[in-house]
Amino acid sequence: MAITRERAERIARAHACVRCQEYSYKKLTVRPAEASIRHELHVAWSARLVCGVCGTHQELGIDDEGDIVYVG
C-alpha cells in the first residue's frame, strides 16, 4: 500500500537541507511522481523543497514504503 500525500510531506520536512543541514523550509510541494520516474526508480512521490535558511532548491523522490530514493 502506497503512503499518503500527508505522510510524504512529513517525510520531506524531516529531511535536512543538503547544504546547511537545517530543517526549515519556506516552500514545500509534494506531487505524484512522473510516470517515467515511477517506472524507472519506483518513486511514488516527488517533493520539491526550498530551504528557509540558505535558499537551496532540492528535490526528493519518495517510494511507496516512505524511503527516500534520491535527493537532487
Rank of each mutant, 00 (worst) to 15 (best):
M1S: 06
I3G: 01
T4C: 04
T4W: 11
R5N: 09
E6G: 11
E6Q: 12
R7N: 13
R7T: 12
R7G: 12
A8N: 01
A8K: 01
A8I: 00
I11Y: 05
I11H: 05
I11D: 07
I11W: 05
A12V: 02
A12K: 00
R13Y: 03
H15W: 14
A16Y: 06
C17P: 02
C17G: 08
V18N: 15
V18I: 15
R19G: 04
R19A: 14
C20K: 06
C20V: 01
Q21S: 15
E22T: 07
E22L: 03
Y23E: 04
S24E: 10
S24M: 13
Y25E: 03
T29D: 09
T29P: 10
R31L: 07
P32R: 12
A33V: 02
E34R: 12
E34L: 05
E34F: 05
A35D: 13
S36M: 09
S36K: 09
I37F: 04
I37E: 01
R38V: 06
R38Y: 10
R38I: 04
H39F: 10
H39I: 05
H39T: 06
H39N: 01
H39K: 07
H39Q: 08
H39P: 04
E40A: 11
E40F: 08
E40S: 13
E40M: 12
H42I: 04
A44L: 11
W45A: 02
W45Y: 05
W45N: 02
S46M: 08
S46T: 15
A47S: 02
A47Y: 02
R48S: 13
R48M: 10
C51V: 04
C51P: 05
C51L: 07
G52Q: 00
G52R: 00
G52E: 01
G52L: 03
V53C: 12
V53P: 00
V53N: 11
V53Q: 07
V53M: 12
V53F: 08
C54R: 13
C54F: 13
G55Q: 05
G55Y: 06
H57K: 09
Q58L: 15
E59G: 13
E59S: 09
L60W: 11
L60K: 14
I62L: 05
D63I: 05
E65M: 08
E65F: 09
G66I: 11
G66W: 02
D67V: 12
D67Y: 15
D67W: 15
D67E: 15
D67S: 15
I68H: 04
V69Y: 00
V69H: 00
Y70M: 00
Y70D: 04
Y70N: 00
V71G: 06
V71T: 15
V71H: 05
G72P: 11
G72R: 08
